[in-house]
Design a protein around this nucleic acid. Structure first.
Lengths: 342, 342
DNA sequence: GTGAAAGCGCTAACAA
DNA sequence: TTGTTAGCGCTTTCAC
């Protein structure tokens, strides 16, 4: 009866499957069979075992099960930032689908630092996740070495919402280029000409820029790269850049996130500019900010829920049958609200 | 060499501590000693083992370690909703401190449903967390039975941001009563009299109501309970209630979250009411919305980071030395912005 | 249909 | 200072 060994100060005598088996008067392995829903056990013994389980309020030990079965029923989600609504929506939808599939989600939040990606992937490997979903932190110099770790350990993974160039891994994302093309086209069709674009890093946000440029061409106009501005992520940084832009008297400012749009609008209003009558501002993603903003924001909707569901199912097919899904690119959709003049 | 047993289709031959020991020419237990940083090993053997670890790029197996050591270095955080900024800030700060303490955070997100609390606590127990932080979903009928589960398994836990009445568990939260008292007092001192209060559930949000009432008394005025309104959580629900309130022409509407304040302001503006000149609106919590709103919101700041740090440290003291910390109540702070007339 | 036994990878008592 | 050994709780052949 040396049940309470070591420094096991808390966790008194836990009831194990052995206790259940004993109480039911069967062998340990039969109990295991029943508790895992495998067939080949008579109804009568099954009954006894289930009864014993209830009476002892037995709960399986996850560590033991994982060790033996070498799976954990855990999926790791690597994500840049939880304070950003776009990402928290992703977390929410991924979590929903993951749990529906009988798995449990654990999170690696990199805090927008790509250096941290490897750290959390490491943690995932250590904790033995059965699969990984990566929402990458895009940077100009792409450090994708953490993918090797996953490959080494044969852990299936899929990219979500974004992906690295020259990377063979499966991914599901929205057509970022198309979304910005549509938005620019919409504004141009409205007759606007002095149309600015605000991005994060020009090298990283190329798809948005390309969409913007191509919309000009489609309308037989010449895009002017001096109308493209860059900003850091912080609200205040965005506002300083917005201030600079505003001085040029644009008719519209397109941004690549609703967050940027919020900051830009706040800055414009501070300068006494009326939205949308004097200036149109647009966002991207269609997260909660765009709806609850005092002037609801015209934006491009990414089909977040759909993306997440597809990504999870793709990952599941890799886990369960080693079938690697094809890359998937979903259509964005323009959402016209009140921050654009019409 | 039957390394690849069972259905172990992926995960090829993992390198174990045994491989490391063999390569270093020492015994398995010596390797374990070194890898866990326990002393009593000569520098020379230590060196050899570390070298072998590198060469084989060995990584410990978490399941095995947990099973043996009966701890997982995981902490569970039970939280109502990840799309709510208040909670995501909590997650962020808790995560930071937890990781600083060498633990890993896993999340149970109840989706604002108190029925789910038991489900996630169960999951935590199953996964063997070493401790739990509960941000409870407050409801009128308090179902705290999940606490028993934690007690049964001797898993330390602490409440954060809120706590149940008649509950002996340690907690750290902000003085909600005081915050609303200060806010009401501030508005009253400004000369406002027709001061409305918007809460969620009157029975649950009593501390806020009491603060509101007492501020009237302090100013030798009579609080009028018919000025207290209730709303559901959804943005649209809040707006419908706001519409009703607005019809009564209040001078100010106090709310108990920045989210409610946003919705209320949007509704007021829709009705052509100017903020703050014609109506003051206040929030609570001081989350991101209150800063980025077009009219930055006057609110009550909860010291979220401090709360989180204290809670984690308290939990750690329970885990490491079974010392149960005293309840802690922190001071809120008024943050005056531009949604209130002055 | 059921039981016995091996062993997943690791830690920690105990021996040497 | 180092090695031997006994399990942690579970799943899964393989006999019966």
């Amino acid at each position: 009866l040396q049940k309470k060994g070591g420094d096991n100060t808390h966790k008194n005598e836990r009831v194990t499957i052995k206790d259940v088996a004993e109480r039911a008067g069967v062998s340990l392995s039969t109990a295991s069979l029943v508790l895992n829903g495998k067939g080949g056990v008579s109804d009568i013994t099954k009954e006894k075992i289930l009864k014993a389980t209830k009476e002892l309020s037995y709960r399986p030990n996850h560590a033991a099960r994982s060790l033996r079965a070498s799976n954990t029923k855990m999926i790791g989600l690597l994500i840049p930032d939880i304070l950003n609504s776009f990402y928290s929506e992703i977390i929410e939808y991924v979590r929903g689908e993951i749990e529906r599939q009988g798995y449990f989600l654990i999170l690696g939040i990199t805090g927008n630092k790509s250096e941290n990606e490897e750290k959390y992937i490491s943690e995932f490997v250590y904790r033995g996740v059965d699969g990984v979903i990566c929402v990458p932190q895009l940077t100009y110099v792409q450090n994708t070495s953490y993918i090797n770790l996953l490959d080494d350990y044969n852990i299936p993974y899929i990219f979500l919402a974004d992906n690295y160039e020259k990377n063979e891994s499966p991914y599901v994302m929205c057509d970022l280029y198309k979304g910005n093309f549509d938005m620019a086209d919409y504004l141009l069709q409205l007759g606007m000409r002095k149309l600015f674009l605000l991005v994060g890093d020009k090298r990283v946000d190329m798809p948005y820029i390309q969409g913007y440029r191509d919309a000009f061409k489609k309308n037989k106009l010449h895009p002017d790269d001096s109308c493209i501005y860059e900003t850091a992520y912080e609200f205040e940084s965005i506002q300083s850049v917005a201030e600079v832009m505003i001085r040029e008297n644009p008719e519209a400012i397109m941004t690549i996130s609703d967050w940027m749009a919020c900051a830009t609008m706040q800055e414009a209003i501070k300068h006494g500019i009326k939205i949308p009558s004097e200036l149109s501002v647009t966002g991207y993603d269609d997260v909660i900010y765009s709806r609850i903003n005092q002037t609801p924001i015209t934006t491009v909707r990414q089909p977040i829920q759909e993306m997440c569901t597809i990504a999870v199912r793709g990952l599941m097919s890799m886990i369960r049958s080693s079938i690697k899904p094809e890359p998937i690119i979903l259509e964005p959709k323009l959402v016209i609200r009140e921050s654009t003049k019409y």
